[in-house]
């Protein structure tokens, strides 16, 4: 056997392997763009993290229920008072589901308007986070006691922030239609929003529905409240 046969064979195996492997990979992503791949990776990371958050939230809920059960077992004397205090603090903090009368505002993007004027800036036809923020502020000034948006309970640390084409509330992405539920005086809250942001949205032809209801159930905040820097003074 000639001395070059073996090395050449080895090189041939490796190079044809590389070649076919590369061809196969390229065939799978024609018009490959590293940036889009990067964002795809990021999307999967975000999705995984969201799933993790969900499981952990469920875990927190289960542990909280367990804690409630344990606390309700020891109801003697002074503990009873303390328990009442805990319940009150939880309601204040938004850690319990609450019900009562209030209003429900349903907001959606102005899709019809965009279809009618297709070349216009779509930003003029979608609900932005500041619309929701203003509405929530107006509800608060009218004495809303509990507010949730698409079942995300607003508590003192809740954010309402624009993240691309969705809105982030309690670190959860919220997409239209937005259903804002608020417990409080229906009359006061209706007046407050009707004189402010709701009026502006209506004049821009957004599809809006405002209902006064006798019974609204607002879910508890699902996440965990943790104070790392704030200490009791």
């Amino acid at each position: 056997m000639r001395k070059y046969i073996l090395p050449l064979t080895l090189i041939c195996i490796i190079s044809s392997f590389f070649l076919v492997f590369q061809l196969k990979t390229q065939a799978k992503n024609t018009n490959f763009n590293p940036l889009s791949q990067k964002s795809l990776n990021l999307i999967t990371i975000i999705k995984n993290l969201e799933q993790e958050i969900e499981t952990q939230e469920n875990q927190i809920e289960a542990m909280r229920n367990q804690l409630n059960e344990l606390q309700s077992q020891n109801n003697s004397g002074k503990l009873q008072d303390l328990r009442q205090e805990i319940i009150k603090a939880k309601i204040d903090a938004g850690l319990t589901a609450v019900s009562g009368k209030g209003i429900v505002i349903t907001l959606d993007d102005n899709n019809e308007g965009l279809i009618a004027v297709p070349n216009d800036d779509p930003n003029k036809y979608i609900i932005h986070y500041d619309h929701i923020l203003s509405l929530v502020n107006e509800l608060k000034i009218a004495g809303a006691e509990a507010i949730c948006i698409n079942n995300q309970r607003l508590i003192n640390t809740s954010e309402i922030r624009c993240v691309g084409n969705v809105i982030l509330i309690n670190m959860t992405r919220i997409a239209p239609p937005f259903i804002i539920q608020a417990i409080g005086s229906p009359k006061l809250m209706t007046e407050s929003v009707s004189l402010g942001q709701l009026n502006i949205l209506k004049s821009s032809n957004y599809p809006i529905l405002l209902e006064e209801k006798e019974e609204i159930i607002i879910p508890a905040y699902k996440g965990e409240l943790q104070f790392e820097y704030a200490k009791l003074q």
Partner: peptide, 22 residues
């Protein structure tokens, strides 16, 4: 032998399901 090597490499490359990160 080198041509057989080419075919072998191509075969391994086409059957391998491992996906290289893009």
């Amino acid at each position: 032998l080198p041509i057989m090597g080419l075919i072998l490499g191509a075969y391994i490359g086409s059957t391998l399901t491992f996906q290289l990160p893009a």
